[in-house]
Design a binder for these strands. Structure first.
Lengths: 123, 123
DNA sequence: TCTACGTGTCACCATATAGTGACATGAAAA
DNA sequence: TTTTCATGTCACTATATGGTGACACGTAGA
């Protein structure tokens, strides 16, 4: 089912940005109006905050309820649970084998990351 | 500790790309040489595959072991477990409250996503 | 030795994304 | 009604990212 994969993709990509993860942390403590979110995420401008919220809405990580001219943003924990659960389940069986292989490898010095990788890790 | 946050950030961002998630799936079944990975991810060019691998190495999701002129890429499941576990733990307490609030909201029609969101969800 | 091959790196392009200011809309309050 | 305010949308810029081809390097094998 392609739409489901796209849905997962939207969720992962939404979680890829630290600002959006912080937004979910805030919303997890309780729903917030868009204006309140703007206030919490200075110095970002309102449009930037709304774009991030839109990405979260597209991923169904945030549900919107309008009340007059105010918009309430609600955190929806279901997609995260699904994603994390699916990933952990998928790797649970392979995890021990992978760890054993890794242990054997790590005993020998693990080097050979590309220069790009070394450099960026330093920063 | 800032470095830890940066580390988490690298992990989330690495997982944000579907190609890289697929790569982890492949590597979870067993280590692969870079060349073998290139073969598995056609029609991507070698450089693209190596860039993705570099991102995964930076996030410590892939460990590298060199053997002569061959490079073996090993999947490291630890960071994913840590990340997913932390999120699930952090949200576990708030989850039930958030779900209850959501249920109340969802009873009323949930509308009001921006046009951008509606449009992109359609696609 | 010389050759072939796997890998590392560089320069470059196209697109996606984060961010901003300005303007439009619609509901609440004066 | 008029004004105010929260929100929605648009046009635009700058940077990050994914992707490619070409070249360099070092090791294994002929």
């Amino acid at each position: 089912m392609k739409s489901s994969l796209d849905e997962d993709d939207r969720i992962w990509r939404a979680l890829g940005d630290p600002v959006r993860r912080k937004m979910l942390d805030v919303l997890a403590d309780g729903p917030q109006t868009t204006g309140a979110m703007v206030g919490r995420f200075e110095p970002l401008c309102r449009t930037a905050v709304m774009k991030h919220l839109d990405v979260l809405v597209r991923a169904r990580l945030v549900m919107v309820k309008r009340e007059g001219r105010v918009r309430w943003n609600h955190f929806n924990p279901v997609p995260i649970d699904r994603i994390c659960g699916r990933w952990l389940d998928a790797h649970r069986r392979r995890r021990s084998a992978a760890l054993n292989r890794l242990k054997r490898v790590v005993e020998a010095p693990v080097v050979g990351e590309t220069e790009i990788a070394k450099e960026k890790v330093k920063q």
